[in-house]
Design a protein around this nucleic acid. Structure first.
Lengths: 213, 213
DNA sequence: TGATGTGAATAACTTCACAGCG
DNA sequence: CGCTGTGAAGTTATTCACATCA
């Protein structure tokens, strides 16, 4: 059964990804069904909202039993658009970029890092794992030839804006920005997500000072 | 004037960090005052909520003029608990950990990475910048001697739980978890923040599929 | 019986609109 | 006059409580 996709807020989408992880975890442990209460413990959300989130995509659970894990993983993958593999590229092959390519959590997501780009002559021609490092000069050429839609940015903050503006937005639809330069959420046709690592330190600092949560 | 600190939700705290970045940006450009409408453009929040967020800490703005940038930065630093420098340690000196220590965005936050820990003999004794890499065996000893309160975790997922459980929570109050293993938000006395890099890819995947905002 | 799915109730958050002050 | 600060209104999100179905 194809899941319905009603208008869904980002809040809900973020929870869906938590459910997905929780389900995979349970699957590895050999479970077949998972109840909303069990998911709640695993991912820190209220059982009620878990049921509500899932219910909006059609009746995915079995009353009295819970949710079939394989089926629900499959449905969530469809809902999140993770069923077909996507080619993504990395811009900036420094420590952070290298870490991203090697990050084991990405393997579950269906994203292939097919190339990295850098302007450091020493890096160009090298590989990160199996991913080749190419020259930034070839960037848009590559994007157009390979039909790339998603870019992961980890260059120095000072270069961020220039690079984003140079991206061909007939092709690029999503940018994950790991630089410390904050960009608007939409630019031309591109969705931009800013991931500010310093923010998390600031939040934890506040939590510790004020005993939040 | 010491800012009041009423009960503040994490939602608000996250916005405060956005204001802070926005203010610093304006400060570099030589501005003295910033209006809520200008901040709104810079950080993507509604001017109204910016004023409301700030107002709850006392009257921080000048009617007709806006907010004094230096003063407000100072106040936000106090509110977020960023005024006094904190020593933090890194556990796991791989690519991601190395990237964290070198991440330029962290310099604005008052966090000093005073040591990294790893169990790779080849790394122990080396330095990341000026940060020494020590043996994991010395971890709790070091924590107790140096009175460490914050830990940044970037070890393989399989080791995460074991390490977190071994931490002495008489000292450690906050954990930033960059591994792909998800931990509960509270464990013993520790605040834990899970930063799941794969989640951002999943969210952007959904956005692209459904044209969410 | 024991779980989901769901309307109703509650709570949290955001926007509006404007009084009031510099 | 132009901004902030803020009550009121509006919106979104969460929890509760229970009917419903395997």
């Amino acid at each position: 059964m194809e899941p319905k996709t009603p208008k869904t807020s980002e809040t809900v989408v973020r929870r869906l990804t938590d459910y997905l992880r929780c389900l995979k975890h349970a699957q590895i442990q050999g479970k077949i069904y998972l109840k909303s209460t069990e998911m709640a413990i695993g991912c820190g959300h209220n059982p009620s909202i878990i049921r509500k989130d899932l219910a909006q995509f059609g009746a995915l659970g079995l009353k009295g039993t819970g949710y079939n894990i394989i089926e629900l993983i499959d449905n969530l993958n469809k809902i999140l658009g993770l069923t077909k593999a996507r080619d993504v590229i990395l811009i900036g092959a420094g420590n952070l970029g290298t870490a991203m390519i090697k990050y084991p959590g990405f393997s579950s997501v269906n994203f292939n890092f097919i190339a990295a780009f850098d302007n450091d002559e020493k890096k160009i021609g090298q590989f990160i794992g199996i991913t080749p490092i190419l020259s930034l000069n070839e960037l848009n050429n590559f994007i157009e030839k390979q039909n790339i839609e998603i870019v992961i940015l980890s260059v120095p903050a000072s270069e961020t804006l220039k690079i984003v503006e140079s991206l061909n937005d007939d092709y690029i639809k999503g940018v994950l920005n790991f630089t410390s330069e904050i960009l608007p959420a939409r630019k031309n046709n591109m969705f931009i997500h800013n991931i500010d690592l310093a923010k998390e330190l600031e939040v934890i600092s506040f939590c510790m000072k004020n005993c939040l949560s």
